[in-house]
Design a protein around this nucleic acid. Structure first.
Length: 655
RNA sequence: GCUGGCGUAGCUCAACUGGCAGAGCACCUGUUUUGUAAACAGGCGGUUAGGGGUUCAAGUCCCCUCGCUAGCUCCA
């Protein structure tokens, strides 16, 4: 057994120490540079400030310094937890009275800089459970007491201290930390938010301060620059600027699609519709408003009631002097706006006797759905109360499930490729705890296997999300991040033996007997609204020619060319292209600027020269100036770009 | 739903400790006839989200409602 030395000493002795190294990894565990351990140099893997692990060390140390500053500035504030996260850190505080203001953040930042300047070492000491309990008890740190209680028996309890004398600050913490506060070079507190203690909404709400930290001031600035760039792509901002959609208080969280946005929306739907004929789907159209009995059968009234819009008609009302009220006892009669399509599809399936020969039956529906989402969760197009899905339900036999999964994944892949999505996180959400699921273990084994086999056969990498499945069956989820790194689920395919049961659906098998079909819920876009929002950010609003609401704009050099411009517009429209003209009295430079801001794929400049030569001066949004082209030549080019990307033709799209 | 923040012209934003509601862009009109990222001038545009209160006086301070927003929780 080698003697206990600090990793810094060990590395230095071997000549392997440099100033980028801020911690080391020992058998997969990150440890301080300055806490003695028993190890040889060959066992130590250096962790550099620029690596994800190194950044986490810096950020977690910064969180300690912040908590120190907060407790000094706001006596009586209790600390809870303060981990490093993807691009920074946070610390949750229980602050008596009101929360933190922006001015508080600035003051805290200043106080932190003083701690950094003091360059005080982070010291690790281990204590017994009793010592720790007594110490934090005396300090009145009740949350820390709970944290200590939650540390498993037999595990070492360590404290980290920095500062000296009366300004010493201590936290119970696993570590590791940078050797001293002076190592923290670039710190920024970003915002405050509420957060429930232990993430449970029944617990008190704490004040969370978010911040970030980097090894250098340059790295921090680069990070802030990228954040700003992301804000520029926010779909809510682009939606307004590009006149795609708007929101109004008269219908909270329900988008109004303007002509340009509505065009793209319909084009997306048409595109999927086009694929449906190849993949064997039948589209249906179903009602919007239903007798609540339907949702009693489907189980929505029990599980989903809080999220449903209910309607009344005059005959359900009784007049009062102070206004009309729903007649007592009739609440249950109020019709409901559908939040999902599956019940309607079950009604269709069950409307006559079905044969195994009809299976698999893939029933598609672009019906509009309404869900009452709680006030705090709505977000641009990503979480709305009125939307449609590229929804379909596949009724099939148990044996057909795996094949259906494979075919669905192929379809989904084709669609995502068309929209230039390469990076999608896939999750397999498996069975919830036994008290929260239906069906036998054998059934779950089988349905989970069917989904994972489908993924494996498609050669896709995925993560298991244990316990995240629906109570009736597992699901595959496809997630992407928006510009501000919020994760959204787009597509999904879910295995559902439950709904056919509730609707008592059956088909006649080869054996002449009745059998229960399996139902697969599946969507590729998921919510078309959400997909559109994510796609706006993904493309930065630079929609490819096949999707762009207007593919080109004709710009006149002066009013002398108006007549020719109209002629060009007519000819290209006649060829089936979408375009408009800017015949205003602006100068050409201004017209180009406006057209660029609206991100037209092509600008067609026309003046006397072009009129003479039956041509247009072509400027492409993505490829710059292309020079003069004959009108017919241009028409051919635009037409070839107007078709949606198909398999084996990946030459189009966002640049 | 919870904790913070915000809400001023179509858009982006000003208006000091309470003291005459403003600018740029957009829009309309006129002048200019323009060659690859903003011509010039004039004009129109406001229940300062809505309601109540304090005050001689409220965009500004207080209360309620609505909406938006950062998070948390939720998303059978």
């Amino acid at each position: 057994m080698p003697e206990r030395k600090t990793p810094r000493e060990i590395l230095a002795a071997a000549g392997a120490l440099d100033k980028d190294i801020i911690a080391v990894s020992l058998h997969g565990r990150t440890v301080d540079l300055h806490t003695p351990i028993a190890a040889t140099v060959s066992e130590l893997k250096p962790i550099r400030a620029t690596s994800p692990e190194g950044l986490a060390v810096i950020r977690h140390s910064t969180a300690h310094v912040m908590a120190d500053a907060v407790q000094r500035l706001f006596p009586g504030t209790k600390v809870t937890i303060g981990p490093a996260i993807d691009d920074g850190f946070y610390y949750d505080f229980d602050k008596p009275g009101s929360g933190f203001t922006d001015e508080d953040l600035r003051a805290i930042e200043q106080a932190m800089l003083a701690v950094v300047k003091a360059d005080s070492p982070f010291r690790r000491v281990t204590v017994t459970r009793d010592e720790a309990k007594r110490m934090f008890g005396a300090m009145g740190e009740t949350y820390k007491g709970e944290i200590i209680d939650a540390i498993p028996e037999g595990e070492e309890i360590s404290l980290y201290k920095h500062g000296a004398g009366p300004s010493e600050w201590v936290d119970v913490c696993e570590g590791p930390h940078v050797p001293s506060t002076g190592w923290l070079k670039a710190i920024k507190l970003t915002h405050v938010a509420g957060a429930y203690w232990r993430g449970d909404e029944r617990n008190p709400m704490l004040q969370r301060i978010y911040g970030t930290a980097f090894p250098t001031a340059e790295a921090l600035e680069e990070h802030l620059r990228l954040l700003e760039q992301a804000r520029q792509r926010d779909h809510r901002k682009l939606g307004k600027e590009l006149e795609l959609f708007l929101f109004d208080e008269v219908a909270p969280a329900m988008p109004f699609f303007l002509p340009r946005g509505a065009f793209i929306y319909q084009r997306m739907v048409d595109y999927v519709r086009g694929l449906y004929s190849r993949y064997g789907y039948d589209e249906v159209i179903t009602p919007q408003v239903f007798d609540p009995e339907l949702f009693r059968t489907s189980g929505h009234l029990g599980h989903y009631n809080d999220n449903m819009y209910r309607l009344w008609t005059e005959d359900l009302l009784e007049k009062h002097p102070d206004g009309a009220k729903l007649r007592p006892g009739l609440q249950a009669e109020a019709f409901a706006l559908k939040p999902m399509n599956c019940p309607s599809h079950c009604v269709i399936f069950g409307s006559k006797r079905r044969s195994y020969r009809e299976l698999p039956w893939r029933m598609a529906d672009f019906g509009r759905l309404h869900r009452y989402e709680r006030g705090g969760v709505v977000h641009g197009l990503a979480r709305v109360r009125s939307f449609a899905q590229d929804d379909a339900h596949i009724f099939c036999t148990r044996e057909q499930v795996a094949g259906e999964i494979t075919s669905f994944i192929a379809l989904l892949h084709e669609v995502y490729r068309a929209f230039q999505f390469e990076k999608i996180d896939i999750k397999l959400a498996t069975r919830p705890p036994a008290d929260k699921r239906l069906g036998s273990d054998a059934e779950w084994d089988q349905s989970e296997r069917a989904l994972s086999e489908g993924l494996d056969r498609a050669g896709l990498k995925y993560e298991i999300a244990p316990g995240e499945g629906a109570f009736y069956g597992p699901k595959i989820e496809f997630h992407v991040h928006d510009a501000l790194k919020r994760s959204w689920q787009l597509g999904t395919i879910q295995y559902d033996p439950n709904m056919p049961e509730r609707f008592n659906l059956s088909y006649v098998g080869e054996d002449g007997k009745d059998h229960r079909p399996i139902m697969l819920h599946r969507a590729i876009f998921g919510s078309i609204e959400r997909f559109f929002g994510v796609y706006i950010e993904h493309s930065g609003g630079n929609f490819p020619t096949w999707l762009a609401p207007k593919q080109a704009i004709v710009l006149t050099v002066s009013e002398k060319s108006d007549a020719y411009a109209r002629q060009v517009v007519d000819r290209l429209r006649g060829a089936g292209l979408r375009l408009e003209a800017d015949l205003s009295s602006d100068k050409l430079g201004a017209k180009i600027r406006n057209a660029r801001l609206l991100r037209y794929p092509y600008m067609l400049v026309v003046g006397p020269k072009e009129a003479e030569a039956d041509s247009v001066g072509v400027r492409s949004r993505d490829a710059g100036e292309l020079g003069a082209m004959k009108v017919d030549e241009l028409a051919a080019r635009l037409l070839s770009e107007s078709r949606p990307p198909a398999e084996g033709r990946a030459d189009q799209g966002v640049h």
